[in-house]
């Protein structure tokens, strides 16, 4: 069933041509937790034609505080399966693939065939660096984001940039191990990721290439730093 006027309120911001580009696009979302759930929800609502969701976890009670796809009714269900079910009733005009498993360097590439862009929604700095390596090999743009407590970081890595390696390749454990993640931080960072994603998909320049956005929701400061 086609819902006429679904994208009517996007007009002016997104032209009919832009909307068509989104409909013809495929985006892989690697990780379907706090960030990934919100990213998937928004990309579905904005009309990206195909989404491929990766996650090897099932929902647990501690996910309810922030993961939009988690409900009291689906504890124990595969995260990607729950997301796929929800997105089907949000936008039945798009196609959603659910990969029940962790993204791996050896098997990941075959799932990324035909994809136009990858959204990082992982919870590990090391795996982000690996994902960027795969994106580079496959000539795919990567939009990455990370969160901890009141804070987040976000950027865009085009093939050859290796910005994620630069940002996440150093330092010990992420401070999220201590600070956790409240509901609003993944929500905000996912919105910002989706804005950069949409720009790339419609052929506009992303704002955070060779740079990262340092987000502080405690002071409401958003500061852009160049990667040097």
């Amino acid at each position: 069933m086609v819902f006429e006027g679904r994208y009517r309120r996007n007009k002016k911001t997104l032209t009919d041509e832009d909307q068509q580009k989104l409909a013809n696009s495929a985006v892989a979302i690697v990780g379907c937790g706090g960030l990934g759930g919100h990213i998937a929800e928004q990309l579905a609502r904005i009309g990206v034609g195909k989404l491929i969701l990766f996650d090897g976890d099932r929902f647990e009670i501690s996910n309810l505080n922030r993961q939009i796809m988690a409900t009291e009714l689906n504890i124990g269900q595969w995260k990607v399966e729950a997301a796929q079910e929800r997105l089907k009733i949000v936008n039945s005009e798009i196609h959603v693939d659910a990969i029940k498993g962790w993204f791996r360097e050896d098997t990941g590439p075959e799932h990324l065939q035909g994809v136009n862009l990858v959204c990082d929604a992982l919870d590990s700095r090391e795996t982000r660096v690996m994902l960027e390596r795969v994106c580079h090999q496959m000539n795919l743009p990567l939009v990455y984001a990370s969160i901890a407590g009141w804070y987040g970081q976000l950027g865009v890595s085009l093939p050859g940039d290796f910005s994620a390696q630069w940002l996440f390749g150093r330092g010990g454990n992420g401070v999220e191990k201590t600070w956790g993640n409240p509901a609003f931080t993944p929500g905000v960072l996912a919105c910002l990721s989706v804005a950069e994603t949409v720009k790339i998909l419609i052929g506009r320049q992303p704002s955070l290439r060779n740079a990262w956005l340092q987000v502080d929701l405690l002071t409401m400061e958003f500061e852009r730093f160049k990667i040097k």
Binding site: D120, A121, A145, S146, A148, V175
Partner: peptide, 9 residues
């Protein structure tokens, strides 16, 4: 300027 590692998702 000092930044701690932020890695959650």
């Amino acid at each position: 300027a000092l930044f701690p590692p932020v890695g959650g998702g």
